[in-house]
């Protein structure tokens, strides 16, 4: 499902990449940016947490004239005289204007790095309202946001994710460069699909989905070792040759009855007695405790 989301087929979508301190979601965010650029879409990035160089790292080979990075990293609070983009500018009117600046008729994709930064400075209801207005507004085609789930109270994270159409939660995988993505997607019809995949991000920001798992903790790489033949390396012979096996089959065992006698014994006659037995207390003999009857 990760690959479908990367292809970005649905409009009006709001995608959240959720990460925590053990694994950063920024590389995945950059993969989404590069996928959008490959589709010749306009991408507006509100860069609060990472510098422009860090975001552009890895995107060199792509057509970058469609990439507009709004530098909110240097001075987001307006401490200097000329801030490029402040957090107060995160409201519906300003962002619509920003998105409409590009001349393309196709609406742009808005990438927010990161929503956590904004939530620290603006109160959550305002942020949610802005995001909802943006989705409905039509100026942007899709919104992709990065959220650090461990930086906020559970309620805040829940409220923001409630607005989203898809949420991808990344966590570290078994190997160093692999990660696990738990995706939850809500379709317009109300159907919810969930998936868990292991993926790796290459140098050129393409995502390679390694294998889909339905339960966590995959261990398919170990194969069963072939069973060792126990009769192989002995000083005596435990094997049977074919003739020996035949002779063994033919041997009449001492207490084997003929077929008729077996049938006669199986149907017990009316006169045979039966033994009825109910075990009593003395039979509850526990091997483990020989001193059970000692009074200690």
């Amino acid at each position: 499902m990760l690959s479908e989301l990367l292809q970005g087929t649905d409009t009006g979508g709001f995608l959240i990449v959720q990460d925590n301190i053990s694994h950063s979601g920024r590389p995945l965010l950059k993969s989404f940016i590069s996928a959008a650029l490959n589709r010749d879409e306009d991408v507006h990035v509100l860069a609060f947490e990472a510098s422009e160089e860090e975001l552009k790292d890895g995107l060199q080979g792509l057509p970058c004239q469609r990439l507009h990075i709004h530098n909110a990293y240097i001075d987001p609070l307006g401490w200097t005289a000329h801030p490029a983009f402040t957090v107060q500018q995160f409201c519906f009117e300003e962002l619509t204007q920003l998105a409409k600046q590009t001349s393309q008729p196709k609406p742009a994709t808005l990438v927010i790095d990161s929503l956590s930064w904004i939530l620290r400075h603006l109160n959550p209801p305002h942020v949610c309202k802005t995001l909802q207005q943006l989705r409905k507004g039509g100026a942007v085609r899709a919104i992709i946001g990065l959220l650090h789930a461990d930086m906020h109270q559970r309620g805040t994270v829940g409220s923001i994710c409630h607005l989203a159409t898809s949420v991808i939660a990344v966590s570290p995988g078994m190997k160093a460069d692999e990660a696990v993505a738990k995706t939850t997607k809500r379709a317009k019809s109300g159907k919810v699909t969930q998936d868990e995949e292991i993926f790796r991000i290459n140098e050129d920001l393409t995502v390679v989905v390694l294998n889909k798992t339905s339960h966590p903790g995959p261990k398919q790489t170990d194969q069963e070792e072939p069973e060792m033949d126990p009769t192989a390396n002995l000083t005596f012979n435990l094997r049977l040759s074919d003739t020996e096996r035949e002779a063994k089959e033919k041997l009449a065992l001492p207490f084997v009855f003929s077929k008729e006698k077996k049938m006669a014994l199986l149907q017990s006659g009316p006169g045979s007695g039966r033994i009825l037995y109910e075990p009593d207390a003395n039979d509850d003999y526990d091997q483990e405790d020989p001193d059970d009857d000692l009074d200690v």
Binding site: E49, S51, E53, Y73, I74, D75, P76, L77, W79, R120
Partner: peptide, 13 residues
């Protein structure tokens, strides 16, 4: 956190 952000933005970047 804001202070450390600004320090990082100006000093590191």
């Amino acid at each position: 956190l804001d202070f450390s952000h600004y320090c990082r933005a100006s000093l590191c970047s």
